[in-house]
Nucleic acid binder design. Structure first.
Lengths: 227, 227
DNA sequence: ATTATGAATTATGAATGCAAAATACCAACA
DNA sequence: TGTTGGTATTTTGCATTCATAATTCATAAT
């Protein structure tokens, strides 16, 4: 019996999950904002059933808070939450690095190197927008090399929660330079397939980020995409 | 404005999530088994709406697979899945250990020691049932000391997925003795608040477990609760 | 003026209804 | 025997409906 080729028929509810997640991440829905079911349904042109299903899923992802009998609000990620999430991120990146070293072949690593080099070019040009995107791509590439879908998924979920937090300060020049130096070391460890060292570097890199990208509770300087 | 005391009004859908999770974990719903909505609804005395909401949540937890237009089945955790989940578990236990060392006071640690000693007594008596329960309690206690709810939640979710897998072999006497020795070391590291060492020990302990509790694809000896 | 009280309105939680898709069934045929 | 084609049945996905809890708003009381 051959596995049938599954034509990916989209469920409305899945589409809604993705759409809402996007809206939360790019700020179209602000943290703490009440999610009025009827209003959103009208806006999206759907009925309440699939929306409510989507909300349940997003709640289990931690992007939405469900208040029984009082509706849903966009999750309010606190400083404490962020402080809790970063060590988890670090641990996940750590295993990802180890697995990547164990499983990647030269070709794979060359591809990460290419991304890394592009990222460095963006840094040289001080193109922050591009840099941040490529930085993310490098980290994702390492996770991809780890060939562990469950791990990747958890990483994405944590990252989403962190990004859903609006109170993250942009890194300053010094922070940026530090991150760059760390990335050089990371790339080196990967190319040497030194899993233990890569794991350590990644954990430190993330821990460092969590410190550098300090919470802007002191100054009111809210800025996104710093991770 | 004081925070109102929230009377925990249970949503039907939440209750269903818990119930279904339990049914999956204790085998009342077998992996791969089709979940017939109507039949389950009749059995539980509810309508399809809350059941479907619950299924979406369980799907996002990885305990249920949603096949668009073809219903839901209990997730079939494969050997590969387990192999992917264990390194994640190890990483999570690792951070938990580090955080626990950093945050626990003597009182907290004494409580873990008590659980640990009870567990050892169960081992001495070869009371496996009790041992497994207490072993779990020890690990949970360490996570509790880490005071990181997000971390604890992820741990529970991974553990649930592992337990949802029916193809886990029971540890033999030698494995058990090894695990015991490791637990002694773990307890020692915790009492010395040596975070780095505890982290390392826990990661190894979990990695060891994943090897010892090998998958029973060779022999047909399916046995649960080995973790 | 501020706080209570209670009716009116609105929103949520869950059941039901309905169209479309998937599955089961069964006969015709190679 | 096994395969194809077509119909009937069931199941799924989503919309709608309905009961009840929460909120709002107006009025009365302090």
């Amino acid at each position: 019996m051959t596995e049938p080729t599954i034509v990916p028929r989209l469920n409305l509810h899945d589409t809604i999950v993705t759409a809402l997640r996007g809206m939360i991440l790019d700020g179209a829905l602000a943290p703490g904002e009440k999610i009025a079911e009827r209003a959103l349904c009208d806006r999206l042109g759907i009925s309440r059933t699939p929306l409510r299903e989507a909300l349940k899923v997003l709640a289990s992802e931690g992007l939405v808070e469900l208040l029984p009998r009082r509706g849903a609000i966009v999750a309010q990620i606190t400083e404490a939450d962020i402080a809790n999430l970063f060590p988890i991120m670090g641990a996940l990146e750590g295993v990802a690095g180890e697995l990547a070293c164990a499983r990647a072949d030269a070709r794979d690593i060359a591809r990460v190197r290419a991304l890394h080099d592009q990222m460095m070019e963006s840094y040289a040009r001080r193109d922050e927008q591009r840099y941040l995107r490529q930085n993310r791509q490098v980290h994702e590439a390492i996770f991809t090399l780890a060939r562990n879908p469950a791990l990747f998924e958890m990483y994405q979920q944590i990252l989403a929660r962190i990004h859903a937090c609006r109170f993250i300060r942009r890194k300053d020049d010094h922070d940026w330079a530090t991150a760059i130096a760390e990335h050089d070391e990371i790339m080196d460890a990967l190319e040497q397939r030194d899993g233990a060292r890569l794991s350590h570097l990644l954990r430190n890199h993330i821990a460092g980020t969590s410190v550098r990208i300090a919470l802007a509770s002191l100054d009111g300087n809210e800025q996104r995409d710093a991770v």
